[in-house]
């Protein structure tokens, strides 16, 4: 029943994503594409934070490394299709390197270490002007071609991004259902116990960072081609914190958490623009209220309803049992 409704729900959502852009103007299509890019990035962070329990506040650095890799390679005359795997590979390796501190420190200290890594990466992007363009950024980044089809148009690029997001979504889904996925959650729930059960904590910790980084890197590559201009600003610590916010608001450890979380982070502020000058104030307040209302994220709503129903049923059963017992007792005393 649950599985069935999930499948129906997913197909309806996919259909909506396929059809929606035809009813939107270019701004709407752009916003949807922007959202997809952040879903992809947040998916990676969800693996690191939500499934494997590694508190990372440096995700935007990988996002930036992916974006700069593609931009620099395309400016040097290489194809996007060479840049994309290169971005993924570089992020994978960097992810492993960043994972090493996680072997020594955990929780907030890990968050601090990754935040430090992010700042360092940002400084390199800003200061190494001969490679990255420094604060001037890199302009006129082209959009790729696919099988001779230009993806230059807003719609074409949207469908391309949607395709990439779905492919990576399915890959992640497969990964999480495999023994690896179980190992990641074991790591999160109780690392010491996981270790005693024979999970190689070292390898899985590093992998959770590396795979998460690949997702961010691919998202960064798509981002560079989407905006067609990059400078260091969107890859700083602030962005990492926003991505973290997306994962936690959506529901860490829920597969579709990043989809909802990225919508809160990307679409909600745009939608709130009717509040004019107040829109960011409203957005910040909404984040606080959402967190207090649903500490486990928006996708915990079904679980919460279920828990409430179960407790209601249990208390109803209890009440019934009490009445029955009372009736019995009444009978007993009457007899």
């Amino acid at each position: 029943m649950k599985k069935q409704s999930a499948i129906i729900f997913t197909s309806v959502a996919l259909l909506a994503l396929l059809v929606a852009p035809h009813f939107l103007k270019s701004y709407g299509v752009y916003l949807l594409t922007y959202w997809l890019v952040f879903i992809l990035a947040a998916m990676g962070l969800n693996l690191t934070v939500g499934y494997a329990g590694q508190k990372s506040l440096g995700h935007a650095a990988f996002f930036g490394i992916g974006a700069y890799t593609v931009a620099i390679m395309m400016k040097a005359g290489f194809s996007f299709w060479l840049g994309l795997p290169a971005a993924a590979a570089i992020c994978f390796v960097t992810g492993i390197l960043v994972g090493f501190p996680a072997l020594r420190v955990q929780t907030i200290y890990l968050a601090f270490a990754t935040l430090g890594f992010n700042t360092a990466a940002w400084l390199v992007m800003r200061n190494e002007e001969q490679y990255t363009g420094g604060t001037f950024g890199i302009n006129n980044i082209a959009r790729p071609e696919l099988f001779g089809l230009s993806l230059d148009g807003a719609l074409a690029y949207y469908y391309f991004t949607l395709g990439v997001t779905i492919v990576f979504g399915l890959l992640l889904f497969g990964l999480l259902r495999s023994p690896w996925g179980k190992a990641f959650t074991a790591l999160r729930d109780n690392p010491i116990r996981a270790e005693s059960l024979g999970v190689d904590v070292r390898n899985y910790t590093l992998l959770s960072f590396a795979i998460g980084a690949v997702y961010a890197g691919v998202a960064g590559a798509l981002f560079a081609s989407l905006v067609q201009f990059i400078d260091p600003a969107p890859f700083g610590v602030g962005q990492s914190i926003m991505m973290y916010l997306m994962v936690v608001i959506g529901g860490p450890g829920y597969f579709f958490g990043p989809v909802v979380g990225a919508a809160v982070g990307v679409v909600l502020p745009e939608w709130l623009r009717f509040a004019q000058d107040w829109y960011l104030f409203v957005f910040g307040s909404a984040v606080v209220l959402l967190m207090i209302w649903l500490p486990d994220g928006l996708l915990s709503i079904p679980d919460r309803i279920r828990a409430r129903r179960e407790s209601r049923e249990a208390s109803a059963a209890r009440a019934a049992a009490v009445t029955a017992a009372a009736a019995n007792a009444g009978k007993g005393s009457g007899a």
Partner: peptide, 14 residues
């Protein structure tokens, strides 16, 4: 949920 988000996105495009 996704539909709601989409509706929000659409709502943004007055």
């Amino acid at each position: 949920m996704k539909k709601l988000i989409l509706a929000l996105a659409l709502g943004a495009l007055v």
